[in-house]
């Protein structure tokens, strides 16, 4: 089946089998392998991408369901050569070790902080309960998100939603 969607700012047309999940389509059809598959049953959150502004598990969605959607994957977060403020905060706080859960953490937190740039520590912690990390113990991930809030607050002020 042919579907058309916008991914990381580019309009893309792709032919996918009806049973193909969105994460498989991104990885196998579009070579966007930054989106990782950790469980294929919607628990680990590694495959999280942003669909029409909301963090979504791409392993629980069929590719055909994404027809017409606007999607951001981890590959679409950096600003050109520079890391985004959230990515830079992750590096500064050592919020990643093996890097496998990181794309899902980044997309989840990017969606959250875009919508709620003043999210509390408790809120941040609560939102990433849907993303499993086996390396860091989560503490530096929460610290990184708190640190990145200011950049989201600034961009909210300069471009009110």
């Amino acid at each position: 089946m042919n579907i058309t969607l916008s991914i990381n700012g580019a309009r893309i047309e792709v032919d996918v089998p009806p049973r193909m999940t969105l994460c498989d389509a991104l990885r196998q059809k579009l070579q966007l392998t930054g989106t990782h598959i950790g469980c294929e049953h919607g628990v680990c959150g590694a495959c999280t991408i942003i669909v029409n502004g909301r963090a979504v598990r791409s392993c629980l969605m069929l590719a055909v369901q994404a027809s017409g959607a606007t999607i951001t994957t981890v590959e679409g977060l950096a600003h050109g050569d520079d890391l985004s403020p959230l990515q830079a905060a992750f590096r500064r706080h050592h919020a990643l070790q093996c890097g496998f859960c990181t794309p899902g953490m980044l997309t989840t937190l990017h969606a959250l902080l875009t919508e709620e740039p003043y999210a509390s520590e408790e809120r941040i912690r609560d939102v990433i309960t849907g993303n499993l990390c086996r390396c860091t113990g989560y503490i530096p991930i929460v610290e990184a998100a708190l640190d990145a809030r200011e950049a989201y607050q600034r961009s909210r002020e300069s471009a009110p939603l």
């Binding site: 392998t33 890391l83 050592h94 496998f100």
Partner: peptide
């Protein structure tokens, strides 16, 4: 700050399943 983070954070890591 870690060297490897630069590719991991951009989704440019190369894990086994990324290889065809």
């Amino acid at each position: 700050e870690r060297v490897e983070d630069l590719r991991y954070l951009r989704g440019k890591g190369q894990y086994l399943d990324d290889l065809q």
